[in-house]
Structures are given as structure tokens and as C-alpha cells.
Design a protein around this nucleic acid. Structure first.
Lengths: 215, 215
DNA sequence: CTGTTTTGTAATCATTCAATTACAACATTC
DNA sequence: GAATGTTGTAATTGAATGATTACAAAACAG
């Protein structure tokens, strides 16, 4: 029935290059830190989620804090990179140029935060304003987005505010898992629909897919 | 120089009615939980902030978790109550009726989140979507606000979305302490100004007052 | 005054968890 | 095929912390 010993035989854990393991750990840590917060997450939870042992996680990143910092830095980098990519695309000039750009940037954002790890890691970063390192990263990241919208996208202040504000509302409604209670309270879906409008199907498709994956 | 003993003399800690102590602890806990999160905060930190001993905090609320739940529930209640109060005020009918109501509700919200404990406790609640109890409270609270704006204020969907979105952006910019770097990066103030517009002085006055209080 | 309730703390316990140590197995190089 | 480096774990430890216990002193009731 099993090999060599009579014990559970905990599969001999495939050897994988450190660089690749690193990515696995970061992906797992993003989810775990996102859901439980820096203090609420344990290195053991991250290790299990990544399919390795706790000491390996610690050795790979030195400390739990370093791991968290890297998770946050990655999330912010991906956010900035996502916007930069959209802004680098060619755009035709016309009446609806701005509307189109907003739609593309919005889609890129929703695409990013469909990854619940990214979404929650970003929000954890926003809630770490008191932490010198994470707080500074969060402020710098937010200001970089602001400058991109102002200088590269050429948006006027009200457009910028509206765009950023919508994004923060997206964050919140997804973080509190509003879609979870669609069948208990129809207002939940109404609020989601009024918030995400056309993007709702995109969002719901992603959360449904994720739920199916876990089942 | 000091009384009785040669030791620091830790003042005999005034006896205060339990009900009043309870409020002190909740106020302290709001700040501590807000800054450090549920897991990051210790009952000892709350106790020190409230000026009492750690066992007393635990005995008053049974468990750390109960204390956190009550802090979150209070924050959500104050939010709902604040809006309900504005909506109960008499309003004259006119072209700018809606604008005026938005302004009043917005002012009430900014007034509320000037209390950093409330602001951060609310955000912690939003980030606790995975926790059955806190998550349910957060969802219910958000939906109640939505219904108030839809049914009592009579706002159309886009107005509701805009209002809620602005609120979430307020939250974020205050949480990351953007005003802290006004003199390092002028864009920080620009972003705050474009977000809060008229309300900025209100916000800055409050944070400045709070900073002075701590100094 | 005497007894009881309320308000509070000091000391301690049991658990959790990040970090360290020591070691093992595989891979690569020479 | 030894020597070296890489990838991994089991076992342990030391510190932190929520909770409990035992006790003290103030307030109050009769």
C-alpha cells in the first residue's frame, strides 16, 4: 500500500530551485497575510500553504517581517506596473479618449484585485500607516499612481479623485465579501451592481471561479 | 519629593465606576486595535492606554475577542447613527437640495473619522471579511448605509456610488497618513486637496490638534 | 462597627510561535 | 567517487501573551 515505512510516508517533498520556491512562498504569504494580517498570520500557516516546512520559510526570508515587506512591495509594484502598461498602450484621439482610458485602467485594476491576495495585501498596507517602512511604501505607491493619472493620463483633479475613489470602494466591497450574501439580501447585489456596473460580471466570474477552485 | 515609599509610588489608581471604566477601555481599545489590528494588539497595550492593569481589561470583557467585537460594533453604530441624525434634520426643497444633503452627510462622515480610532476600527472591520462575526457586521453595516442613501436620502445609484467611493478614499488617505509627508512631497497635499476639497481644513485641523495633543 | 460588594492588582500559568540548531538527502563539481 | 553546495526537515527554545487565581483595599449597607 505504501513504500518503505508503515508511517504516513509524507511524500519526499520534491526538490525545487530556491528561486521558484521563493515565488511559491510569496504567493502563499500574500493570501495568508491578506486574510489574517501581519500579526495574525503565522509562518507555519504560510509554510503549509506553500507546501513546505516552517523553518524553510524563515530561512528563505530571514524574518517574518521581511517576508511581509516583500509581499507588500510586490503588490504595490504589480499595481503600478499594471497602470503603467495601460498607459504605455497607443491611444487614438477623440471625444471619448478619456472615457476609454478610464475604462482600460479600471479593467486593469479589477483584473489585479481579482487576486484576493493582492487585494488584501494592498489593504493591509494601507492600514499600516503607523509602520515606518510599510507606511512609507504605501504613501509612495499611492502618490506614484496619482502622478501617473495626472501627468501621463492627463486627467483633471475631479477625474482623478473619482477614479481613485471608485477603486477604494471596489476594494472595500470585495474585502467584506459582499457577493457572499447575494442570496440572503438582494440589496447586496444591487450595491455591487451600482458600484461595478459593467465590470460586475468580470468580478463575479473571478470570485465564482475561485470558490469552485477551493471546493 | 514623593510620598510614603522610595519607589515610584505608582499612584493608588483612583477607583472609578465600572461603567465609566468600560468606556475608557473601549476608547483605548479603539485606538490600539485600530493601529495594530486584532492580533497585533495586546490586552496589556489596551490596559496601559486605559491606565489600568491587564487582568482588569480581560475581566471586564471576558476575552480579547469580545472586546474587539464591541469596539467594531460601536464604530459601526456610530457611523450609522451619524448618518441617521443628518437624515432626520429638516431639509428645505430646492435645486441644490441633493448637493446640500451630500455636503452634510460628508461633513458628518469626516467628523466621525477624525477620530482615528473610529477610522481604523472601521477599516479593520472591512478587512475582517473572513471572520464570520465581524464580517457579517461589516456587511450588514455597509448595506444599512446603502439603504439609507437610497431610501431615506433618495439618491440615485450614481450619486450613492460617488458618495460611498469618496468616503472610502477619505479612509485610505487618512489611514496611510498622507498629511505626514506634506513637506517632503507637495503632491501629497495636492492629492489631499483634490480629494477633500472644502473639507480639507477640517481634516487638517483635526490631525494637527491630535498631533499637538500627543506632543 | 461589621459584613458584603465593588474595584483593582500582583503573580503565575499554559500556550503559541518566530527563530535556531542540528541533521539528512539530493545534486553537482572536480 | 569524494568533496561541496543546495534543498529540505525534525526538534527545540525563548519570549510573548491571554487568561486565571489569589489577594487587597476602598466603598457601602445594615
Amino acid at each position: 500500500m505504501n513504500e518503505t515505512s508503515g508511517i504516513a510516508a509524507a511524500q519526499p517533498t520534491e526538490r525545487i530551485p530556491a528561486a521558484e520556491r521563493r515565488e511559491q512562498i510569496l504567493a502563499a504569504a500574500s493570501v495568508v497575510f491578506g486574510e489574517r494580517g501581519y500579526s495574525g498570520a503565522t509562518t507555519d500557516q504560510v509554510a503549509r500553504a506553500a507546501g513546505i516546512s516552517q523553518p524553510y520559510v524563515v530561512r528563505m526570508f530571514g524574518t517574518k517581517e521581511n517576508l511581509f515587506l516583500e509581499v507588500v512591495a510586490r503588490a504595490l509594484e504589480r499595481l503600478v506596473a499594471g497602470f503603467r502598461q495601460v498607459l504605455a498602450e497607443p491611444r487614438e484621439h477623440g471625444d471619448d479618449e478619456r472615457e476609454l482610458l478610464i475604462a482600460r485602467l479600471g479593467a486593469a485594476y479589477v483584473d489585479l484585485i481579482e487576486d484576493r491576495g493582492i487585494l488584501l495585501s494592498l489593504m493591509q498596507a494601507f492600514l499600516s500607516g503607523h509602520n515606518p517602512v510599510v507606511g512609507a511604501k504605501a504613501r509612495a505607491g499611492f502618490l506614484e499612481i496619482y502622478r501617473m493619472l495626472r501627468d501621463e493620463a492627463g486627467f483633471p483633479p475631479d477625474t482623478i479623485r473619482g477614479f481613485l475613489a471608485d477603486g477604494m470602494l471596489f476594494n472595500t466591497l470585495l474585502a467584506i465579501r459582499l457577493p457572499d450574501i447575494f442570496d440572503e439580501d438582494p440589496d447586496a447585489e444591487e450595491l455591487m451592481r451600482c458600484t461595478f456596473r459593467g465590470k460586475l460580471d468580470l468580478v463575479l466570474g473571478a470570485t465564482a471561479a475561485e470558490a469552485a477552485k477551493h471546493a
